[in-house]
């Protein structure tokens, strides 16, 4: 990185404040659509941090995959389950929230203590920064990380097939006549699934 030290510090501070602010907004805001757009802000700030860490390829991949794919997918999910429902009040819920906040703060204190007291073996004379990270990453992918690289493609295929199967409507071959189910203690409160026969594909 050819930037001066002061420029790096200032841009790191701006990006860190942006990232933490938008992350808190994602978690704390009540409107889910605002949260989804703030999530894009988190991803963009993290991409800027990657640029500060001399990783141009991963920064570009972060923007492409997270902002371009994952965030749009989340926005689609919000539109598909667009239901304005007021969650029923649960007594004593603030106790759970407070306990969770305490636990998270304690975890952060623990992690920061570990980070600060560990003597990182940081080589002060840094070796020459790799000029072209794309070439290096490609060499790693096709030599010593070849098997995980291929397995990742299989994983993506499995996830795609699984998502399609989970999200499609169920096709039930023949419409069975409605039978009144006796509500026992084991009956789940599901609404009756609309029956679609295999013959008509109007859906």
């Amino acid at each position: 990185m050819t930037l001066a030290e002061g420029v790096q510090i200032v841009s790191f501070g701006i990006l860190a404040i942006m990232m933490l602010g938008t992350a808190l907004g994602v978690v704390l805001l009540s409107n889910i659509v605002h949260s989804a757009f703030l999530l894009a802000g988190v991803f963009l700030s993290i991409s800027g941090l990657y640029v500060l860490l001399n990783a141009d390829f991963v920064a570009a991949a972060q923007i492409l995959v997270y902002v371009g794919a994952v965030n749009v997918l989340i926005l689609f999910a919000i539109m598909l389950v667009n239901k304005q429902e007021d969650f029923s009040k649960i007594p004593g819920r603030w106790i759970r929230d407070a306990a969770t906040a305490v636990v998270c703060f304690g975890l952060f204190a623990l992690l920061s203590t570990v980070v600060l007291i560990t003597p990182w073996a940081e080589n002060t004379v840094s070796p020459a920064v790799i000029e072209n990270t794309v070439v290096t990453i490609g060499e790693h992918f096709f030599s010593d990380f070849l098997l995980p690289f291929e397995l990742a493609s299989v994983l993506l295929l499995m996830a795609m097939v699984g998502a399609i199967i989970l999200a499609r409507r169920d096709l039930i071959p023949e419409p069975v006549e409605k039978q009144e189910t006796i509500a026992t203690s084991l009956t789940l409160p599901e609404r009756p699934r609309e029956l679609a026969s295999l013959g008509d594909s109007t859906d």
């Binding site: 995959v65 699984g162 998502a163």
Partner: peptide, 27 residues
């Protein structure tokens, strides 16, 4: 900094996160 294996792992985590988002939203 010599051989950037952390970036390789980051790319794998991004891949798995994309798959996880798709399956999670389908569920």
């Amino acid at each position: 900094a010599g051989e950037i294996k952390g970036q390789i792992f980051t790319v794998f985590v991004i891949t798995v996160a994309a798959a996880e988002a798709a399956v999670g939203l389908a569920i």
